[in-house]
Amino acid sequence: MVTTKTLKSTASLDGKSKDANVKTPNYCSLIELPERVFAPSVSMHRMELIQLIMKKWLNGTTLKYYFFNGSSDGSPATWKGTASQIASVKKGFNTWKQEGIGLIFEETNDRNEAEIRIGFLRGDGAWSYVGRDIIDQVPSPNERTMNFGWDISTDVDTTVHEIGHTLGSPHEHQNPLAGIVWNEEAVYTALAQPPNRWSREKTFHNIIRKLPIGEVEGSTHDPNSIMHYPFGPGLILSPTEFRNGITPAGGLSAKDREFIKKFYPPIAAADYIRLELNQSKPINVKPGQQKNFTFKPTRSRKYTIETFGTMDMVMVIFEKTTTGELYLSGDDDSGKDYNAKINMRLIRGREYIIRVRLFYAGEEGAGSLMIF
């Protein structure tokens, strides 16, 4: 995201500087990770559904966030934020939560418990890993999963934007459906200058590169999305309506709200299905949708929880405690030739929650879940 909504380009349509005293705004950048490679047997349709959903959280998950505080937790003192910056980040979490979603955000003072670990290192830019990458790619509790590299005390849009990445949203201006044709040399020139000082590779990854169509939700481009950079004139050749730039309205757009409620709708008590031992329960949902189950064992022993059918699915089990849900284990069988399965010891009298989200089904209504 950026620190201002009023932009002027530092480059003309020929890619040459127009005004050396005019700076581009601070932009957020994404961590570059290797793209997932699928087996040749995975069809294009199946692959696109997996790409759309694979970084999203299981709905109902409690995402705990932690602020590095410098010398008292052994992290660099430069990672510590001011009280006003921390307050701005909390407002960002609240902006998403006010949409009535099923995810829960909870601050923790123990970084070992946190999925989201936030630093404020100046000069390091604003960035975040996307969705489940923060646990799949950042296993150490001593590492940041999000950073704010400039003063965001009054810049809540930037915090909402970075949290949007953590919820699984990519950059909207990289939507291949937008039809944006960049004045590439002008973009490279503008981003090479202060305050970003980006390399051509970094500019390509965060602006010019088109996302795989499978990672894009919906069929239209949303220039007002909180996940969209603003751009000044001279950086876009077409469509013609963008030649003078794009200035998102600020805050969550209608499409942002649609996205968050599609993947993370509120969960009611009636949405939970009770699992009984050795009894199959159907998983009759569409790609992207989720089923929630509960199980209370009558004796302590090792159990197997397994999905059946031609499906790609992620399955996670939590223990229900007095303070919330405790993550125990999970399995993601997307793009693989086996079904999701969890083997573990469960304790009599305790209550467990099993959540499954469908990526792809070979045929509608063909899946089921059983514990035995």
Rank of each mutant, 00 (worst) to 15 (best):
M1G: 14
V2L: 15
V2G: 13
L7S: 02
K8V: 00
S9I: 05
S12N: 14
L13N: 15
D14N: 12
G15R: 09
D19K: 02
N21M: 04
N26I: 09
Y27T: 10
I31Q: 09
I31H: 07
L33G: 05
P34L: 03
E35Y: 06
A39Q: 06
P40I: 03
P40N: 04
E48N: 14
L49R: 01
L52T: 04
L52P: 01
K56C: 03
L58E: 01
Y65T: 02
N69G: 13
P76F: 09
A77E: 15
A77G: 13
T78W: 14
T82V: 08
S84K: 10
S84D: 11
S84L: 09
I86T: 13
A87E: 12
V89T: 09
L103H: 00
D110H: 09
R111K: 15
A114E: 01
A114K: 02
I116G: 02
R117N: 12
R117F: 10
G123C: 09
G125S: 14
G125N: 12
A126C: 15
A126M: 14
D136A: 02
N142A: 15
N142Y: 15
E143A: 15
R144D: 13
M146Y: 10
D151Q: 10
T154K: 05
V156R: 02
T158Y: 11
L167Q: 00
E172I: 04
H173T: 15
H173I: 15
N175Q: 14
P176L: 13
P176N: 14
A178W: 11
N183L: 13
E185K: 14
A190G: 09
L191A: 15
L191N: 13
A192G: 11
W198H: 12
S199V: 07
K202Y: 11
F204T: 13
N206I: 05
I208L: 15
L211P: 07
G214A: 06
G214D: 05
V216Y: 07
V216D: 08
E217H: 11
G218K: 07
P223M: 12
I226S: 05
I226W: 04
P230I: 08
G232E: 05
I236T: 11
F242A: 07
F242R: 07
F242G: 06
I246R: 06
T247A: 12
P248V: 03
G250A: 12
S253M: 07
S253G: 09
A254P: 06
R257M: 06
K261S: 07
K262V: 12
Y264G: 00
P265M: 04
A270W: 05
D271F: 04
D271Q: 07
Y272V: 01
Q279E: 05
K281L: 02
N284W: 06
N284E: 09
K286Q: 09
K286P: 03
G288S: 05
G288I: 01
Q289L: 08
K291W: 06
P297R: 11
T298H: 12
T298I: 13
K302A: 14
T310F: 09
T310L: 12
F318S: 00
K320M: 00
T323F: 03
L326R: 05
Y327P: 04
L328C: 03
S329F: 13
D333K: 03
G335R: 00
L346G: 06
I353R: 04
I353Q: 03
I354Y: 00
I354K: 00
R357K: 13
R357C: 05
F359T: 01
F359Y: 03
F359L: 01
Y360R: 05
A361P: 02
G362E: 08
G367M: 08
S368C: 06
